[in-house]
Nucleic acid binder design. Structure first.
Lengths: 204, 204
DNA sequence: TTCTAAATTTGAGTCAATTCAAATTGTGGA
DNA sequence: TCCACAATTTGAATTGACTCAAATTTAGAA
């Protein structure tokens, strides 16, 4: 039996994540009590703290799962981007946004973002930061791809432009999750509008 | 005596803010206990909760004071901006950044930002969001001013560009406060680099 | 198989934020 | 001036996240 200890660990961890997921969705983040999560996961409270530094960390772990899917979806778009700069960028950012609310509510995003800024050095705070970096890199990769395809000028700083596009989208996404009444359509329109001038400037 | 009640309120509130300010700075946000803040402010714990929804709200109120100063400093730059697009924008953003750490530590910023995303609807959460909006508006105002001065092309969407510049700076500022080891110099260089392409594109 | 030590789990106890019913204080009218 | 009522303050009690010393479980050596 190569590693009962390791097996148990994986097992317990997934039970914790599952229980927390359910409760966060059902009761909201604040409403979900650690004791209840522990009871559902059939572990003790102490064990949860053995796996996660604190409550926020559990949430950030769940968000990470979602972001991994977002990254995978983005990869497909980069492989075959629309043959038009504006539409290519819009397609990638739209894919990010559409995927972001599949499993997570706005409230869960708010809490996760809050935790990751509050505790940037906790294990999952780092994970979150790294994922953000990956997403930014992916945006840059799209710009590079469009340069290869001859759709974007080669004499511009693709990295700088990619980061700027990603950063401003990210900020607008934060505004979006802060406002419970803001629709996805509105967010997407704002993003397109904000990018327009830059997109025009970099188009070949 | 036109309003002893109103007078007391102002009095108590400023004692609370002062006490909290001191303690946040001395003990850090987590380290400052509400009981201690109450004791120093010579009010009871309950009164603090009468004035602020929770601990984070107190901090956000303090941060708001600082942001008001940042706005005032920005106003001066808009009145007499450097006669060069890149330097004008750099001057404004630099002023934001320089002023931001005068009274507040990175830790305080982290906590304040976390609280304001966590509770966008609490009174001070709203205040914070409004201030962010004001700062963005100010950046847009600079672009408009530069258009008036004939330094920026008139055929671009000044509002869209201004928001984009502000948003991406804001995101980089968040990265900056998350990383205790990141220097202001580095932040400013990143911002300049990221803005370069856009600045070139909008220059008249 | 048996035993020891290291790794892991456990949950009662601690700690600090937050609440809320009772007590106090300010206001405006008689 | 005095009173009744509304606004505000108070702090003991509640709540729930988090800790840590004792108990349990696993690894692997003999």
């Amino acid at each position: 039996m190569a590693g009962l200890r390791a097996k148990n660990r994986i097992d317990r961890n997934s039970r914790i994540v599952e229980a927390a997921s359910d409760l966060f969705r059902k009761e909201g983040y604040e409403g979900a009590r650690i004791e209840e999560i522990a009871a559902r996961a059939e572990v003790s409270v102490g064990t949860i703290y053995n796996y996660y530094r604190n409550k926020g960390d559990i949430l950030v772990a769940i968000v990470s799962l979602e972001v991994h899917e977002v990254l995978a979806a983005g990869q497909k778009i980069i492989q075959k981007p629309p043959r038009n700069v504006e539409r290519a960028i819009d397609a990638l950012l739209a894919s990010y946004i559409e995927h972001s609310l599949v499993y997570l509510s706005k409230e869960m995003w708010r809490q996760a973002m809050a935790t990751s800024t509050q505790q940037p050095d906790s294990p999952f705070g780092k994970t979150y930061t790294a994922l953000d970096r990956d997403l930014a890199d992916q945006t840059c990769a799209l710009i590079a791809k469009l340069q290869e395809l001859g759709l974007v000028r080669r004499d511009i700083d693709g990295r700088g432009v990619g980061e700027m596009i990603f950063n401003s989208m990210n900020m607008m996404f934060i505004e979006f999750i802060k406002r419970e009444d803001m629709a996805m359509r509105e967010l997407r329109a704002n993003i397109r509008r904000q990018n327009r001038t830059l997109v025009k400037a970099i188009s070949a």
